[in-house]
Design a binder for these strands. Structure first.
Lengths: 122, 122
DNA sequence: ACAATAACCGAAAAAAGATTCGGTAAGCGT
DNA sequence: ACGCTTACCGAATCTTTTTTCGGTTATTGT
């Protein structure tokens, strides 16, 4: 896992939250697992924009920080792995919902500004 | 302002939210302004870890997306600028609070994992 | 007149994060 | 036996974000 060069202030709650579920795909993965899509390959098919590698890496981080747990029959070789939310992972869901709602409430405005930017760039 | 090469999915609320108040310092700046610290130089003194340049840039983005507004007497030259939250900016505060509380509730665990990582890296 | 402060900006560089590519090890269907 | 899928990893590369540095313009205090 990547280790930062510059130390971060983990006394700031927002920074802690960003570390655990920030980043481009972690929220989507938590959402998928919450919906019962809990095997890597299935998550990959659910989140079509993300490559398999990204999903593996983000699963590893979510696992590392204890937001999800791995329930695989480690008999001989992994093969069948399933991930589920831990109570800690579940406690993130209300925040995701709030953020998602906020974003959807304001996306028209943001999209418009985005278009302005793109025009100006030409 | 930086213009991405790769398009992002602004139909996902979380992505929209991240665009407006994600990033390393935007939340801190919103918090500062909310506390009545509303001039760039004062915000700089409040958030000591961030350079003046960063604060300017992030203020510009917050302004661009309409989370804050600039109330400067543009008489002859800027000089005195004050920023305040717009209603849209205020609507972000509950989310920040929730994230901050979540982070503070879980920071011991995260800090410990962080220490493990650093040890392993040596 | 001179130093200090405020508000800004452009551009380069560094750091962080995401993506692609190629690989391993194992099981399942035909 | 052969190809397909699953799970996973390392490393190079590219994109995005953050930081640093040096500059402009104007005001205030001495």
């Amino acid at each position: 896992m990547y280790n930062r060069k510059i130390e971060e202030d983990l006394d700031c709650g927002i920074r802690v939250a960003a570390k655990v579920f920030g980043g481009k795909w972690k929220c989507c993965i938590l959402d998928a697992i919450n919906r019962g899509i809990n095997r890597p390959a299935d998550i990959g098919r659910y989140i079509t924009d993300a490559s398999a590698r990204v999903i593996e890496m983000q699963l590893a981080e979510l696992l590392f920080f204890g937001a999800i747990e791995k329930c695989a029959e480690e008999d001989v070789y992994p093969k069948k792995s399933e991930y589920r939310l831990t109570p800690m992972g579940e406690s993130i869901l209300p925040i995701l919902e709030l953020m998602d709602r906020w974003g959807l409430d304001h996306n028209e405005l943001v999209k418009e500004r985005q278009r302005e930017l793109e025009h100006a760039a030409v």
